[in-house]
Design a protein around this nucleic acid. Structure first.
Lengths: 130, 130
DNA sequence: TAACTGTACTAACCGCCATAGTACAGTTGC
DNA sequence: GCAACTGTACTATGGCGGTTAGTACAGTTA
């Protein structure tokens, strides 16, 4: 399930959107799967319907879901690809931080190992599921 | 000189603090060097004295400068080390993004190359200065 | 028709950032 | 001592974004 950290600096609506993106990538939300309704999810997450709606709007913008009044919101076909495409833009964030690290004289190997261990952790959790 | 991007999402006071950290790491602001006065810098950057003061407070919190009324603000001895120490916390940011990339199925090599090219760029600018 | 769905809108509140202005205390150099 | 600088503190204000609250409307489904 998607969880909310009330004390995080990242807005709740973004946490919700990111959470569902993660579920899509994990396969928990396959193409065509129905999202919980705006009102239902707002109860589950103990938040406001408007906040959930904002999250769904964001997911729509990212090409992850499509919604229809009276019907509901569903995972789009090709949602995972859309997420991957959005994800690539985050590489520039890594690059920006890496430049600062380089300037600070932190060894390149440390930064590289940081990436490697992150990928290793991710592989581990995949193995656990299999 | 430290520059301000008015349209950036990162607060001005943080841009100022980050800017001086960069200058310290570059050697432009050696230990013991005097910072411009709060009022002087506020004029140079076309911003408010309060904003500059907030930046100086942040730099003090980071262990980069120390201030005394009537005297001024100066780069602390060991400022560069303090900055490096603060910088290490940013590695967790890289790790968090890397985990997302891993989950999204973006190849590890792409992420690693992102780091490598960032370090290469940084080396280039060092060579230029030499 | 009833019960659901998404969607739109206004109003209000809060926190953070920035600006504006004023004031006080300490240091320095004349 | 005085003038000119330094950091520091304080209140007040405005803007922006995020969140909550409440209401309302339109479309779909059983």
């Amino acid at each position: 399930m998607v969880t909310i950290d009330k004390f995080s600096r990242t807005p709740v609506y973004e946490q919700i959107a990111d959470g569902f993106c993660r579920e899509v990538l994990c396969g928990l939300m396959p193409e065509g799967a129905q999202m919980p309704s705006v009102r239902e999810l707002s109860v589950l997450l103990a938040t406001n319907p408007n906040t959930v709606q904002k999250a769904y709007l964001e997911l729509d913008r990212r090409g992850v879901i499509s919604s229809a009044p009276g019907v509901g919101s569903f995972i789009r076909t090709g949602a995972a690809d859309a997420i991957r495409e959005n994800m690539k833009s985050r590489m520039s964030e890594i690059a920006a931080i890496a430049k600062e690290l380089a300037l600070a004289g932190i060894p390149e190997e440390e930064a590289l190992n940081c990436i490697r261990s992150a990928y290793r952790d991710s592989d581990q959790s995949k193995i656990k599921k299999e």
